[in-house]
């Protein structure tokens, strides 16, 4: 459902932020993407979301190329950035309605989803407040709710747990499992190796723009912990 083939991207034309990255992620998988700072995680995630152009390779989202059929690919996908910069002059409800309007979600459907998720993340009471008054965590929750509004098949998330309180982080993990059980896939980057080890069915480790390990979590970690494997791989 998310197929990345020979993805290559350079910002300056000399150094490659991502070099020949290939990953194949199937529905029902929670796929963790791990790497040190500047390894190329965000570059790949932004390219999947259609935010960045790339030099070579192909990205297919639900069978649609992000390059040649970007609108179809984006309709099947939800993206969550590493920093929830959203329109601060809007209220939370206005932002969610904005996203719902773009996806063409009916008022009844959006109401059902927004009420359910805003209640779960405990921000229902502030939806009529301007986003400018939200904390980082509240903005993060708002963007997560906006990502869930159209029942996407592919979730692409950049450091989704940063800024969330423990309860919200737990709920997000449960949500990932629930979505995958319903046939979606979750592809997310994280620095929290314990979360990746316990939550992900598969893991990819990127180092200096290249995938150095990928596959089922159990196969990657073998007898050791993900932390020791990760440190061994990046220091090699």
């Amino acid at each position: 459902m998310l197929k990345i083939s020979h993805f290559t991207k350079s910002y300056d034309g000399k150094n490659k932020a991502c070099n020949d990255v290939s990953l194949d992620i199937e529905q029902g998988e929670i796929y963790g993407f791990i790497g040190h700072n500047g390894a190329g995680k965000t570059t790949l995630l932004k390219a999947i979301a259609g935010i960045h152009d790339f030099d070579a390779g192909e990205i297919l989202v639900d069978g649609h190329s992000i390059r040649t059929e970007p609108l179809a690919a984006k309709r099947a996908m939800a993206y969550l950035p590493d920093n929830p910069d959203v329109y601060e002059t809007l209220t939370g409800a206005q932002y969610l309605n904005f996203v719902a309007d773009i996806f063409g979600i009916s008022p009844a459907d959006r109401r059902k989803k927004i009420e359910a998720h805003a209640g779960m993340f405990e921000i229902a009471g502030v939806l009529n407040d301007p986003i400018a008054t939200y904390s980082h965590g509240m903005k993060q929750k708002l963007v997560i709710i906006s990502a869930l509004i159209h029942d996407p098949k592919v979730f692409v998330l950049d450091e989704p747990f940063v800024g969330l309180d423990p309860k919200a982080a737990f709920q997000l993990k449960e949500l990932f499992r629930d979505l995958c059980a319903k046939g979606a896939l979750v592809f997310f980057s994280t620095h929290i190796l314990e979360v990746a080890e316990k939550l992900c069915t598969k893991i990819a480790i990127i180092k200096q723009g290249r995938i150095v390990a990928s596959g089922p979590t159990a196969e990657i970690t073998r007898d050791g912990s993900l932390e020791s494997i990760f440190l061994e791989l990046i220091e090699r």
């Binding site: 309007d101 009844a108 407040d129």
Partner: peptide, 20 residues
């Protein structure tokens, strides 16, 4: 700065992508 809106009910009316 924090202030809360007096209106608590959320408006779920939709419109077209262009108008939004």
């Amino acid at each position: 700065e924090r202030w809360s809106a007096r209106r608590k009910t959320v408006d779920y009316r939709g419109t077209t992508a262009f108008r939004t």
